[in-house]
Design a protein around this nucleic acid. Structure first.
Lengths: 206, 206
DNA sequence: CCATTAAACTTGACACTGTCAAGATAAGTC
DNA sequence: GACTTATCTTGACAGTGTCAAGTTTAATGG
């Protein structure tokens, strides 16, 4: 008698998966990380409560997919800055640093989510692809500053630490404390120090 | 007829509050941030499921108390390093940086918890006390490196960014990626760069 | 065109969660 | 010894993730 549900009947092209991730990102933005739930994503996408689990196995799976999406726009944001930079190595490095901060400040929930320390499913292809790509962008920008014979990670982690620390503290602390209302220094101020450190590292005689 | 519960009958000196925080920290360590729950803390402390809400109002309240505890041992860890340092400003600064990393690596769950970006109850006295104290320790160690006429935050955030970025990336990324199995640089390598940057900043003529 | 098959869901159930209202108990006070 | 109040307990409810089983539908092969 009753046609039980069949609400949207979307084509079988994997639309639902991306729709669920869309819903997850929106929920993250609106309700914060605690507001994220399989059932709410399902409701927002117009499917039954158990539909997400079919595609993502469990909540960790959905979280991984959302994190992959996060890394994807992370890469886009850095690339956008990179395209505006001139060809000089220093300008390109500063560009990705500003792109890093752009992402953190325009997408604070996604930024904190992917760096929350929760363990995502590293087997996931999409996740691995986008997160690796983010590091590749960093690596490429750092390459000109690696002294011959040195490990590239020495420069990469230095750069990454400065910009990530600044971005992460900005997101987690600045808003918290009235202490930093107007005195929070600009990123460029840190980058001046960083640039000088890398310049000296460039000359083999130090 | 039945004496309903009255399981432990602890004295009214606020023991339960700290016992619940103990349980929360233990749960965080054992089960991760998702394993933390009011009911499990209650069970571990031997009280009924609603007892924690009486003392902490809600889960956010308990989380804030746990974070306050986290900041407390954070301060202790940095202070411990400070006591082993000699009187030189540079040695003291490096000491708190190493203390920072000590805390992150010996208490990874607490470290990630307090820097998870979730908004704790900033009205809470204990929380405010310990988190402010942590920043005060940093500020004191940075003070000798602030050029006259400059904002202290310029140095503080630079130092904090480097060491926090390094610690946070170490905790969130290093374990993830096989990429960094042996190549992850030591903190001292970054501190050399930082120390040089601060030395030059000290001389007004740059 | 129709039967079959497998993918993409839905339905229903269960244990667990935070939160609230109401009751119980015991310690301290007069 | 009555009273008051802080400290819990009990019971309930809505929301959660997850699983098992059923249902629909698209694609396939004859």
């Amino acid at each position: 008698m009753k046609t039980p549900a069949s609400p949207v009947r979307r084509p079988r092209d994997g639309t639902l998966k991306t729709a669920l991730v869309d819903a997850g990102v929106a929920l993250l933005r609106k309700r914060g990380p605690d507001g994220l739930s399989l059932r709410k994503c399902a409701a927002q996408a117009g499917v039954s409560h158990a539909a997400p689990a079919y595609h993502f196995k469990n909540l960790a799976g959905l979280s991984t997919a959302i994190a992959a999406r996060g890394y994807s726009v992370f890469c886009q944001t850095m690339t956008a800055r990179l395209e505006q930079a001139d060809a000089s190595a220093m300008d390109r490095l500063n560009a990705i640093c500003h792109g890093y901060l752009d992402f953190a400040s325009t997408q604070p929930e996604l930024f904190l989510f992917i760096f929350s320390g929760q363990s995502f499913n590293k087997e996931d292809d999409e996740f691995d692809r986008h997160s690796s790509n983010a590091y590749a962008i960093l690596r490429e920008a750092c390459a000109p500053f690696v002294p011959s014979g040195a490990e590239p990670e020495e420069v990469e982690i230095l750069v990454w630490s400065v910009v990530h620390g600044y971005a992460h503290l900005t997101m987690t602390r600045k808003a918290d404390s009235p202490r930093f209302r107007d005195s929070w220094p600009k990123l460029d101020l840190l980058l001046e120090h960083l640039d000088r450190a890398l310049e000296t590292g460039r000359e083999p005689g130090r």
